[in-house]
Write a protein that binds this DNA or RNA. Structure first.
Lengths: 219, 219, 219, 219
DNA sequence: TATGAATGAGTCTTCATTCAT
DNA sequence: AATGAATGAAGACTCATTCAT
């Protein structure tokens, strides 16, 4: 997204503010049902000035998707390549995913609902990135099966269960809800791993290994 | 849903057809991004005639939500009052829910995405019905805990996991996908029950009890 | 230009009226400087109704160009294939061209000034048709040289002189001006043929042959 | 054309550069369809600085018209008062006109197309200057008739033929085209004079008189 | 039953211009 | 001498809806 060169120091700050405000509106009303006029009103900017910052409405959508996918993929790639037990890595990935979901609930809402309004290259890039994330989950699940921790299941269905359980959280989570990402991750993973693991696998052990890993490798 | 009085015999048939077609369009493009003109074109009707059948665009949305919620609640109420083990009832409810999701994927898409475009009484009624369904799930989970089958968990979080796992299915399921409702229900419930059950609970036994129930009580 | 099917009997009439009115505005102010709102005002139609008739602003431009080019090319093709002396055919073509220019001065103004605002296929088609007309003029001039009536000149420059002299007429002609197409054609052709003809060619003779042709072949 | 007072030495230079660049854009896209932003981009100037030089968009148009009309009228006035045969003076005027057209094709394009976007005094002055030029041509043609060189024709129609033939040249001429002003002037005047002259007038003689004049009065 | 015609507010976006710095 | 930020009207176009026929 190349932007016209030569902007003042406050430009990017204001720009990010506007994206924040747009994300809140899109989450509440939907992308298609939110008007540029409304965004300008919330931002306290006339339409001309608004466009000076945003370029286009679709651009806002792109930025919001990016704010979700960029940190998610960065973290997922890092976790995927850790030299750790795949089950542990799944647990770490789960918590990262929930971290991002809970930290930016309105972004996630837009991310889940309105990606279909992207067109052309923007849409293609988004789908590619989504597939990459799914691939990482899939590979970790396969690795857990290879390691004997998990039973032999259809890895694709296992991945979809993982995604269902995590991704749908945005539908009911609240910014001031009772549960944080760490807690939800523990619960979700307990459920999934109980369901997926081989007979005799020690589920309870996992949280201690997570704690040990965190002690070894501080964020 | 006020309907003009005094209609011929074909009225209701055509009306249902139009709702079908609208659901398909809404699912593909979103409610806000789908125009009345488009619906008329697909229905082969000029705008005047279209309005004769539909009343308003929001009316279509109401009808689509109803087509999901009416059979879902009917079945859920029936299952909830069965004189059976709560875990078995959960399994039956799961399959019913997945049946409806897979049978009407486009309706579900609209149901999940566009209920926020309902206003006033329509919206209130919808939210009430959703809460009733959630309550049924919650009560079954509590009953399973009371019966000793499940550990003592936060029943609300258990319900949310149940809903996450099931409801998000519409995001990736395809009409010609490889898995049917019975299969997915078995898999999902296996996962959930493994995670929720008390130590020593015999998960594998459940499917035989389902089969026995079906033999006793044919649909 | 496929238009939605099923229009009432008054539709096409009104449509043509609107194109007339748009042509007048475009001629006076230029295509780019004329707003849709202005056209609607002149047509006595709100914006919605206006679009019901026109489809798009560019469409209006296409129609106006077509109203010039269609009769022009039809007539030019017919004249080009007449079994007559090329000089006579040039004279007939000249009068036809001036007929069209004088009959639709505002259309010609738009035709000459605003064809650059056409895009894509519309533009390509226009340029193709213009080239076809030029080709017809060029071929007649070449034939006149081959027949010995004209000196050997650069046929392309001769064609451009023909076009210059005729096409620029729109710049100063008035609907109620003193000269009609027949008169102007006589004058223009007298000038051009005097300049182009071989020594000894009888210029004065031409008008009698035109009269004879008209008597033989009534329009 | 009010200009801010007190400018540095480079001001006027840069100003002229910008007008050049604007003329090129206006010629290609039309005045109304060319944005100030576009001009600023080509000029390498932000909008604020651009306005420091140009004052307003209409100002640019005024300057471009002036660049055509000022040298044209200066030359035409000079030629009109030469103590030479009117036919010779027409031939000299023709070449000057074509010189200006071919030297500044983009300016001419704007001059012919966009003078209607001028308002008020700017427009009045332009029309006055155009009429003055036409008057000069008209007077030369009348003089040629008075001298017996030309037949008695409607002098106004003769003038319009002269203008048609010359002014329309901008429509197809290219900066790197095969014909220069001197050549085109010879051709155009040969055509016009053949058409206008009295019987027995020696057309071929003219070019030698032009050469003789040039030898006597170097530019 | 069904239509075509009309509306006017609303859509996203671009415009020429101004001005504090 | 130049900039970035702001404006608000205007740009073309679409919308859900109504209604006489």
């Amino acid at each position: 997204m190349p932007r016209p060169p030569g902007h003042g120091p406050g430009y990017e700050v204001k720009r990010q503010e506007i994206i924040d405000q747009a994300a809140a509106l899109f989450a509440k009303q939907g992308y298609a049902a939110t008007g540029i006029a409304e965004i300008g009103q919330v931002a306290g900017l006339a339409k001309g000035a608004l466009y000076y910052y945003i370029g286009s409405k679709e651009n806002l959508l792109v930025e919001i998707q990016d704010r979700v996918l960029r940190p998610l993929l960065t973290a997922a790639r890092r976790i995927a390549t850790l030299d750790e037990d795949p089950v542990l890595r799944l647990r770490l990935l789960s918590e990262t995913l929930l971290d991002i979901i809970l930290a930016r609930l309105d972004h996630i809402w837009v991310y889940e609902h309105d990606y279909r309004h992207l067109r052309g290259a923007n849409r293609a890039r988004l789908l590619r990135q989504r597939r990459e994330f799914e691939r990482i989950v899939l590979d970790l699940l396969s690795a857990a099966m290879d390691s004997g921790a998990f039973r032999r299941l259809d890895p694709r269905l296992a991945m979809l269960q993982f995604l269902n359980l995590h991704n749908h959280t945005y539908q009911w989570a609240r910014p001031d809800g009772p549960w944080d990402a760490a807690f939800l991750s523990r619960e979700y993973c307990a459920t999934l791993i109980s369901g997926f693991c081989s007979p005799g696998y020690d589920v309870a052990d996992l949280e201690q290994r997570v704690a040990a890993f965190r002690a070894r490798v501080p964020a």
